[in-house]
Design a protein around this nucleic acid. Structure first.
Lengths: 122, 122
DNA sequence: ATTGTTGCAAATATTTTGCATTGTG
DNA sequence: CACAATGCAAAATATTTGCAACAAT
């Protein structure tokens, strides 16, 4: 994976926000800086960066996939009202070894998502 | 939500398997019993049953949404190799109160998904 | 020069919806 | 009968991909 201006731009968009944007929201933001970027490029780079562990994808029960530029291990809270995705600072749980024992496989990571109503929507 | 033959069939398909099928897999299975069922009906019933908490939806980083007829609280393991989704019997974590304190909102539930390689794909 | 990446547009895949019809209470 | 649910097909959404042109090393 070499360098590319668009990939840099995508990363910078993602690092500059706490809003966990969707592919389309990232696309819209990138278009403000360069109206020529294409949605295909956004998806291709999101896939590349996710596979390399440089960014994180967040799958929720609501809309399409959200992305997170903050890779330090952490969890998420999703509001069932407004759909907002926010970071949590609770400590990572340490039960992967237990899961490996139960499954007989190997665990590479896990995602933990809490659902509910945020302060505003409660 | 009244009774319907198709909804019963869907539930029975889901109760009879541990495979956490996708909407389409459920549709195919139902077609074997009644070739007339439509995919729209499957999706409508999956939405209804999920909202009522009668079944569970599982969002993974791989393919489309999986469903689970087993509602007793539990977590999942997804194989990055074959895509198989399996149940875990580890104990539910009790940190929703902590999340409520941090967010100032209310928590209704959470999902915890482990990723890795299963015994076969390892 | 070679290889990776892009923009564009078309193709897939997934999910939702309108509507006339049928099933359930 | 009244209302809910269905089948079908079309629409809306989301994502992936082929390919010729362009950018990076």
């Amino acid at each position: 994976m070499g360098y590319s201006r668009q990939r840099e731009m995508l990363l910078s968009v993602l690092k500059d926000t706490k809003s966990h944007p969707t592919a389309n929201a990232i696309y819209e933001e990138m278009r403000k800086r360069d109206p020529k970027v294409s949605l295909g490029t956004v998806y291709r780079n999101l896939a590349l960066l996710t596979e390399s562990g440089i960014i994180l994808r967040i799958d929720t029960e609501h809309d399409s996939v959200h992305y997170d530029g903050f890779t330090h291990p952490h969890y998420h809270f999703v509001c069932n009202g407004c759909g907002e995705v926010s970071d949590l600072s609770i400590n990572p749980i340490g039960i992967e070894a237990e899961v490996e024992k139960e499954t007989g496989g190997s665990v590479a990571g896990h995602t933990l998502v809490f659902y509910g109503k945020c302060k505003k929507c409660k």
